[in-house]
Design a protein around this nucleic acid. Structure first.
Lengths: 338, 338
DNA sequence: CAACATTGCTCAATCGATGAAGCAACAATT
DNA sequence: AATTGTTGCTTCATCGATTGAGCAATGTTG
């Protein structure tokens, strides 16, 4: 394998020698502004041909060192384990490439130290922008970016020191809760407060969603049961053990739920299946997030899909224009009819 | 926002001036080999302190240009829309970082042109290794890497020109098919050939899985129905319309299925739900891939989980040692009990 | 035909970090 | 006192691409 790899890479100097010309001319031809530099078409063709024959590849490090803009744009993302972050990353890459930017993405597993380390590394690579997606400490990253002369932006979770593009968590949660409460009423003929499961009590999105959850209850004149707000973290296992604990201490759990992410929903559904707590008592569920399989699970699951395209449109508008009037841009999520 | 960003970035020359020393000393201190270069502890401390105060960040482009190794490792990946690729990417990042390598990943959406363009771009960034995951034309990428003096490796789908680490598709499919056939027999008291749905007839994995599918049928003395091998592509919509077409032309479809990926399964489940074809006739299904929600769908879904950790262990063993005896390394997938 | 413009290129400095080579200053050894 | 060794730095060339300045060789104009 790989036995025919060259030891040394071809540079513009090698090409210049082969073409009997100067490195300067080669550079001009290969980076496209040879017209401006008055290189003849003949020489340009010759150089292009030789470059292709030699399999020449630009050394971006050398090029970037000399140029003023790197055109590199970084993103940190917590996980790759759900559709939401997956489609954020995929769209981000496409939109960056469309603009001639080179995207680099790093997964930081909700680890504050890793986030900072990743940010520093990206800055070493001269990123012009750094998008912190769902970061645990976005302001720290903004500070680091500012110190290094790079732009920064928060996505999904807001920070105080940079523009933030987030879902309308309050509005979305309020509407989702309202729908589940009404569906409950329609189905079971009575009203009842819902169970809230998943997310961290300290994170902005969860706080806002709980607020929307409460607002919807209040709208319909239903009192929230405080013991039933389980902000136990996002991991499936957390949701699972949290439900198990509550069921152990309370007996029967409500037949209506607000689940704070598909990740938590994973644990909820697993618990429902293994505990048999809801056998023959199928609950109505609202989930703040969307997954194609979860949508097919049957029963009564209503999902809100965060508007990834809308959020990234907002992100790139800021990047394209260089600034934004608002500090926090809220994008309304989309309701999927199950 | 961002009003306090500096115009110029701090360099080692700035630090040298502030510390009243030379850039060379600053460089030695900051990259850690100041002991070897006989810099005094006092000066090292002083420089470190000033660097921190100034928020100095190394210019990786300049550093890389000078150094022999870039320690950058690239991966191209088809999509971020399922657990398989998601966990490949996440593990890849972790394992690369553990080794002091800088991972860059690009999603190429199964587009051959994008794959090539992405490979070229990564080579410009001086990647030492390029891992082609599920690439449509891995050999082309290997050629490009060879020409540029970079190592390459195939993951998930094999190529002829570089070492390939893939799942044992034949073995896995054979065992999965066997299980589904037996489950069919147990459940319905008779035997019947299964339906094969999803994947591309031209890709290696699909070919091997169809081969395993046939072998398992043969093992049990069941004849495969050739019209029931639907290698219609991976996209959910393809699976959906393919099933609809078959049902339209054939009437009742078999109650046993082999689905070639969770992506295709998404279409299959949607069709089952919307068409009502299988209402009160729940089929037994085997899926070559795993998804937590799909696993909870109920009914009889058996899933094989590809051994991502095992595959990446093999990948990094090659990277660590620099070579491999085998051209194709097959990793057995793991059977999940539903 | 002199003066000037245009064409088609080359030269050389530059980006920031790195490290081999070298050089003072002082210490240790003969 | 002369030699050798050690410490603690600095100088400078270098990596490969870019670009302003400059320079011959032509072409054009009055």
């Amino acid at each position: 394998m790989n036995q025919d790899r060259q030891t040394k890479k071809t540079t513009i100097y090698d090409l210049a020698e082969l073409a009997g010309t100067s490195a300067s001319a080669v550079s001009a031809v290969l980076n496209g502004n040879w017209r401006k530099r008055r290189i003849s078409v003949q020489l340009a063709d010759k150089i292009t041909k030789i470059a292709e024959e030699q399999g020449y590849a630009l050394n971006m490090q050398a090029s970037l060192l000399r140029r003023d803009r790197s055109k590199i744009i970084g993103m940190i993302v917590p996980k790759y384990d759900n559709r939401y972050f997956g489609s954020i990353v995929e769209s981000f890459e496409n939109m960056a490439r469309e603009r001639g930017l080179f995207p680099i993405i790093t997964c930081t597993r909700r680890d504050p130290e890793l986030e900072v380390e990743a940010a520093r590394t990206m800055l070493s690579y001269q990123v012009e922008w750094l998008i912190s997606t769902g970061a645990t400490d976005p302001d720290r990253i903004t500070d680091i970016c500012n110190a290094a002369g790079a732009h920064s932006l928060n996505l999904d979770l807001p920070g105080a020191k940079a523009v933030s593009v987030i879902s309308d968590n309050f509005g979305g949660a309020r509407e989702l809760t309202r729908r589940v409460l009404l569906s409950y009423q329609r189905k079971f003929g009575s009203t009842s407060p819902l169970l809230f499961v998943g997310g961290r009590g300290s994170d902005h999105n969860t706080i806002e969603r709980v607020r929307g959850f409460r607002a919807a209850h209040e709208d319909l004149g239903i009192a929230v049961d405080e013991r039933h707000v389980l902000t136990c973290g996002y991991a499936p296992e957390k949701a699972e053990s949290s439900l198990a604990a509550l069921a152990a201490s309370e007996g029967e759990l409500p037949r209506g739920m607000f689940v704070n992410s598909t990740i938590s929903l994973e644990g909820v559904m697993r618990w429902i299946k293994t505990s048999h707590h809801y056998d023959n008592r199928t609950p109505v569920i609202g989930c703040f997030d969307w997954d194609p399989f979860a949508a097919l699970l049957g029963g009564d699951i209503e999902m809100v899909r965060q508007d990834v395209q809308g959020m990234l449109d907002a992100v790139f508008e800021i990047i394209d224009t260089g600034s934004s009037a608002n500090k926090v841009i809220q994008i309304a999520p989309v309701f999927m009819s199950a």
